[in-house]
Design a protein around this nucleic acid. Structure first.
Length: 422
RNA sequence: GGAGAGGUGGCCGAGUGGUCUAAGGCGCACGCCUGGAAAGCGUGUAUCCGUCAAAAGCGGAUCAAGGGUUCGAAUCCCUUUCUCUCCGCCA
């Protein structure tokens, strides 16, 4: 959620910056300003009315104590009047607040000044590229064929047991998954992140806090019987640990990492995008989350991108970093870097990580604050990134490292897999 | 799932209709005292909204959440929720 103060003071600036997202917010911002004004006027009227009623009650109390109850009658009537008007004012106030709130939740985060304009993935800026793109022979296999050939993944079994997008990993395939998770968690802990095991289902408040609701309602699996959502990423439960907290300034930055299974409905996806491991309904991911001082969040963002890069370098995978354009930027994010690995048999770049700074957008909803050295309670900044999502990375590892004799396992993973090749 | 007991400030805990503007304690901060520290003494110590250029001040809200009764609710009533104890089920 944006800060209402910002709209109050500089609504033009808000409209201008939202244009980078290709959103024309002029009308909605105008309406928000009106509602905000109306709400404040009504609040004042209500407060004054309540104050008067309070005074009368006190006088009634005094009269009763002095045994002059009879004299209280006219005051009681006056109080009834005030009660009536305060009730009306309260309703008016609630109406202002709820519409205001609704409109505020419709506005996405303002893009950071460095965010380029543009509509789609094609407009994202490639910031850097690392490693060498391998040239495979004509007989190179895509990962879904390798997975079948070496009995690493049983897509058909998954379809039978659940449906498409729910693969069954087995043998060395399963072991490789576990190895990657262990490697990522160990690396994160070495880099100062605290390991967390979060719940995999969350309530609506949590889904709202990090911005999944109401914007991405249809993308989450919903468990109606208990009114809970399966998490699309551990960002949701981990960040919500800090909901409604006021941290001490010296507790910042908070750095957490979590492995979790992630569930996404991915409604509307089709074609080559969903082939093999490219897009799944269930997948494994290690996430890193930071809560920082507002002045330190972009430093933290760079650090997180550098950290994720270091993982990909250790795994010897070619990758590139893209700065998302306004049209591709997530609802709650001010600035996002996507990390894409090269999948040599598919000859495609696949997103394996998305590292974002949400500034105060999430913390506003979460009421996540810290007590600053000036004694004021300020909203903290929140950030998160995948470090990393497994399936597409696995696809690249299998494809890029295939040889006539089998598939080589990167050196850093061997202590976790217990084997050097598949 | 069934029965019962509860939810009060950072924490413990008093408070069953009107000076609650929430006692008292612990913790924390600052000051005094001290060679320094502890102890002791003193002062202060929630959040949100509004008003204000801002701060102070002032007004309002908040005793799990929502609704109700009443001139007046932490206190009485209803609903929801969470915690604890016992029973049942169970990895």
């Amino acid at each position: 959620m944006l800060d209402i103060q910002l709209i109050r003071e500089n609504s033009q600036e808000v409209v201008r910056r939202l244009k980078i997202r290709n959103i024309d917010a002029a009308e909605i911002v105008e309406r928000i300003s009106e509602l905000d004004k109306g709400r404040r006027i009504t609040q004042k009227q209500l407060d004054d009315t309540l104050a008067e009623a309070k005074g009368i009650s006190a006088r009634v109390g005094d009269l009763f104590r002095e045994g002059r109850a009879g004299e209280a009658e006219p005051l009681k009537e006056q109080s009834a009047e005030l009660k009536k008007s305060s009730r009306e004012l309260q309703e008016k106030l609630d109406a202002f607040s709820s519409e205001l709130n609704e409109l505020m939740t419709q506005l996405p985060m303002l893009p950071h000044p460095s965010v380029p304009g543009g509509n789609t993935e094609a407009d994202n800026q490639i910031v850097s590229q690392h490693g060498t793109v391998p040239i495979l022979g004509d007989d190179a296999l895509p990962h879904w064929e390798l997975a079948t050939k070496y009995e690493l993944i049983d897509f058909k079994a998954g379809t039978k047991v659940t449906g498409s997008g729910f693969p069954v990993y087995k043998g060395k395939g399963a072991r490789l998954q576990r190895a990657l998770v262990s490697f990522f968690l160990d690396e994160a802990v070495k880099n100062g992140y605290t390991e967390i095991q979060p719940p995999l289902l969350v309530n609506a408040d949590s889904a709202f806090g990090t911005g999944q609701l109401p914007d991405k309602d249809g993308q989450m699996y919903y468990v109606g019987a208990d009114d809970l959502y399966l998490i699309p990423t551990s960002e949701v439960p981990v960040t919500n640990i800090f909901r409604d907290l006021i941290l001490k300034e010296n507790e910042l930055p908070v750095k957490c990492t979590a492995y979790s299974v992630c569930f996404r409905r991915e409604a509307g996806s089709y074609g080559k995008d969903v082939k093999g491991l490219n897009r799944l309904h269930q997948f494994d991911k290690v996430e890193i989350v930071q809560v920082t001082h507002p002045e330190k969040s972009y430093e933290a963002l760079d650090e997180m991108v550098a950290y994720v890069s270091s993982l990909l370098k250790k795994l010897e995978v070619p990758f590139r970093v893209a700065r998302l354009c306004g049209g591709d930027l997530g609802f709650a994010s001010a600035l996002t870097y996507d990390m894409e690995v090269y999948s040599a048999a598919q000859k495609r770049w696949l997103e394996v990580s998305s590292v974002s700074n949400f500034e105060t957008y999430q913390s506003h909803r979460l009421k996540l604050r810290f007590r600053s050295s000036t004694g004021k309670n300020l909203l903290a900044h929140t950030l998160n990134g995948s470090a990393l999502a497994l399936p597409r990375l696995l696809a690249a590892l299998l494809e890029n490292n295939q040889t006539a004799d089998g598939i080589k396992i990167p050196g850093v993973l061997r202590q976790y897999t217990g084997f050097e090749a598949i």
